[in-house]
Amino acid sequence: MLKQPENVSRRRLGKRTLTAALLILIVIPATILMGVFFLDDRKYYFISLLLLLYTFIPFAIVFEGRKPQARELVVIAVLTAIAVAGRSAFFMLPQFKPVLAIVIVAGVSFGAEAGFLVGAATALVSNFFFGQGPWTPWQMFGFGIIGFLAGALFRKGWLKRSKWSLCLFGGAAAIVIYGSIMNVSSVLMVTPQLNLQALTAAFASGFWFDFVHAVATVFFLFILARPMLEKLDRIKEKYGLLEP
């Protein structure tokens, strides 16, 4: 039912690539130059925040542009709500959250774009309950990009549906991708330039948080991955939802 004609999907890719190219070639260098000339090259946080926001634009344009069906929207909203509820259910255990596991499962099951949307929307919506702050865009980007990668790597065949493959990816993503993004963002916020010592200190002080996050992700993927994927497959089969 949701299957799109071949030429539409090709045009869609073209539009996204075009937007991305425009951003990468013109807007991003312009922002960096503006930072160097007008803000004395000291406002790394501000500039990096702008760059971060640019990464959301191609997704938003493409998603809105193809006029998604109600069923597709609702499935993404349900996955996001489950992830948000999961985050608030484990509120008493810092960093021990099922969010990343659910985002990865969403990416694998519904594709890279859905993975990105579920990740970014989960970070945004759960912060309505936990408090928005300068960390919100970074969390949105961190979760979103991991969902996107999970979908893309699965499509490429490098990520399998097996428990172990997903656990390995989840653990690595929690430490390497999400951990790095959050640590770098906290350094950018409090020091004028990225130097090795401040980064080392941030990574060292953040290590146990990242470690717990990774353990939680592996744990939840180990328990949830198979039943969740089966449930999603069943829904897709039953209602004829095909991967976009």
């Binding site: 938003a60 998603f63 809105e64 993404i76 996001t80 949307l117 309950f129």
Partner: peptide, 20 residues
Amino acid sequence: VMPALSLILSMTLRFVPRYR
């Protein structure tokens, strides 16, 4: 500006208390 994305947001916000 973004009807589909904001609909996802509003549905999610409604779903959370509903699931509880």
